[in-house]
């Protein structure tokens, strides 16, 4: 087996394992840390696909900013392991049904999807490099890009409005 392929299998196994550990571990802090590990292995996959920019941005945005905030909130929640309430059976059954249905839907969609083949001779392996990605984004996909940025701006303004202290509210 060539080294790239064996590395791919190793990375995939690690991804699946850490993703499973996210939902299986009892302690929410461990879950968050396993989720960070999952993001790292996904970045590894991006690098194998020669998309370095995507890999690094994935780490900066998800592992570096969003997961820090997750960890931040969960650390404040102060969940004690021994005081954890056992969840009701009905919740477990409902979760199993919803998860199972989602899995069946995804699997069915995957079975129906035709994955378009590509021509290895015309395939541009440099498309994931930042120069090409930038040209592509600002030339062919300018409108979606600008729309996405407007959406993010709206979300940011909304977050600022929510977080703003109202007049007469206590300072603490």
């Amino acid at each position: 087996m060539n080294p790239t392929l064996s590395f791919f299998y190793f990375l995939s196994a690690l991804t699946v394992l850490s993703a499973l550990m996210v939902i299986l571990s009892k302690n929410p802090i461990h879950s968050v840390l396993y989720l960070i590990l999952t993001f790292f292995t996904l970045s590894g996959h991006y690098i194998l696909l020669n998309a370095q920019f995507l890999a690094v941005v994935n780490i900066i945005v998800y592992a570096g900013a969003i997961m820090v905030l997750f960890l931040f909130v969960i650390m404040f929640l102060n969940i004690k392991q021994d005081q954890e309430e056992t969840k009701a059976n009905i919740a477990k059954i409902a979760g199993a049904i919803v998860g199972g249905t989602l899995f069946v839907i995804l699997f069915g969609a995957y079975r129906k999807t035709l994955i378009p083949s590509y021509n290895p001779n015309q395939f541009d392996s440099q498309i994931g490099m930042i120069e090409n990605l930038g040209k592509m984004l600002f030339r062919d996909y300018l409108l979606p890009f600008e729309l996405a940025s407007v959406l993010l701006l709206v979300a940011m303004v909304g977050a600022v409005m929510l977080g703003k202290r109202e007049i007469g509210e206590r300072h603490f």
Binding site: I36, V56, I60, G64, V68, L71, M75, I130, E131
Partner: peptide, 25 residues
């Protein structure tokens, strides 16, 4: 020599906080 050098540094800097957070918690 990487064509995303400065972004790599930025990503590593973003991760630096985990050592402190994990240890502190």
């Amino acid at each position: 020599e990487s064509n995303i050098g400065i972004l790599y540094v930025f990503g590593v800097v973003a991760l630096g906080v985990y050592g402190i957070m994990v240890g502190g918690w």
